[in-house]
């Protein structure tokens, strides 16, 4: 009895059974299609998004009848005409776009030294500290962080209290455009560092040492060696920060004091405040289009960076 178990243990039996079941479900002749099977979750996910976009596109072509609060049966481009001609939407779109560009630039400038230090430091303690400081904000949601800034920067907040100690009268530090930009940069910084770090890790330290041994100063090495090789990281981080900033809702809503709306806030207003889901859908589609064009431009000009998974543009 014992010998038989050793010869064909239970684990083997289970594995054989499972293999039999797998073969019945996915026969060996389908093996060439297995890689495509792996794509199925992604296809399903993208398919759902596309279905949603089709519904949004359908809604965008219907206008709201305010006597019945029903949407028109007929299609029209009235919502698109409104979105492109009403000053409110142009102002909000312009503000979002400029903010996204400013936030991306400033975030990359701040994120690079952080990522560089984190990757290159010889001190394991410092690296751990930088990693913890990087990941800690992820455990605190965006809304909580934005409210945190209200407490710190408010009229009776810590900063104004500190200023009061040296005789400076309380000043309005929040509820304006700079406050929104500040909040966004603070929110985006960890994302940018996370995208930059792998690109910097991939730069062999020996290259910097070689440049130094050939007489290049640290600055020249940095400009001519490190920065060009870090380009994929900049592109990946830039694309992520750009798109997240462009579509942000919470930071403008909380730190903007109601007067610094982004496109996402305008979309919310249409869906939930005026009940005009058609116009909201139109603005949503235009935001998707704007984001896609921007990302497409970046990819066309600079390649996909780290988002290309190591395959850089020729």
């Amino acid at each position: 009895m014992r010998a038989a178990r050793t010869a064909y243990p239970l684990k083997w039996r289970i594995m054989d059974t499972l293999e039999g079941v797998a073969a019945a479900i996915w026969p060996a002749r389908f093996r060439r299609a297995t890689p495509y099977l792996m794509l199925l979750p992604a296809v399903l996910l993208v398919g759902l998004l596309v279905l949603g976009l089709i519904q949004i596109a359908d809604a965008s072509l219907r206008t709201l009848d305010t006597t019945t609060f029903q949407f028109s049966d007929n299609y029209s481009i009235a919502n698109f005409r409104r979105a492109l001609t009403e000053p409110l939407f142009l102002v909000v779109a312009q503000r979002s776009l400029i903010a996204a560009l400013i936030v991306t630039t400033v975030t990359l400038v701040f994120a690079f030294p952080y990522a560089y230090l984190m990757v290159r430091t010889r001190s394991p303690g410092l690296r751990k500290f930088l990693l913890i400081a990087l990941f800690l904000p992820f455990f605190i949601g965006q809304v909580v962080r934005a409210y945190g800034w209200l407490i710190i920067l408010g009229n009776q907040g810590m900063v104004n209290e500190a200023l009061g100690l040296v005789g400076v009268a309380p000043m309005r530090l929040i509820y304006n455009y700079p406050a929104v930009l500040f909040g966004l940069v603070q929110y985006m910084l960890p994302f940018a560092v996370l995208m930059l770090a792998p690109a910097l890790t991939a730069i062999p330290e020996e290259l910097e040492a070689a440049a130094g041994s050939l007489g290049a100063s640290w600055v020249r090495t940095f400009i001519h060696v490190v920065l060009p090789l870090a380009r994929p990281g900049f592109i990946g981080a830039g694309v992520v920060v750009l798109t997240l900033s462009l579509t942000d809702f919470a930071v403008p809503a909380i730190l903007g004091g109601g007067s610094q709306d982004f496109i996402a806030n305008a979309i919310y207003d249409q869906f939930f405040r005026t009940s005009d889901q058609g116009l909201g859908a139109t603005l949503a589609l235009m935001l998707v289009a704007l984001g896609s064009i921007l990302v497409g431009l970046v990819f066309a000009l600079f390649g996909a960076g780290t988002l290309a998974m190591g395959r850089s543009r020729a």
Partner: peptide, 15 residues
């Protein structure tokens, strides 16, 4: 008219 009033108010305040 609420939708139009909201938009007008927002257009002024966001401008």
């Amino acid at each position: 008219n609420e939708s139009e009033w909201f938009s007008k108010f927002k257009a002024i305040m966001q401008g």
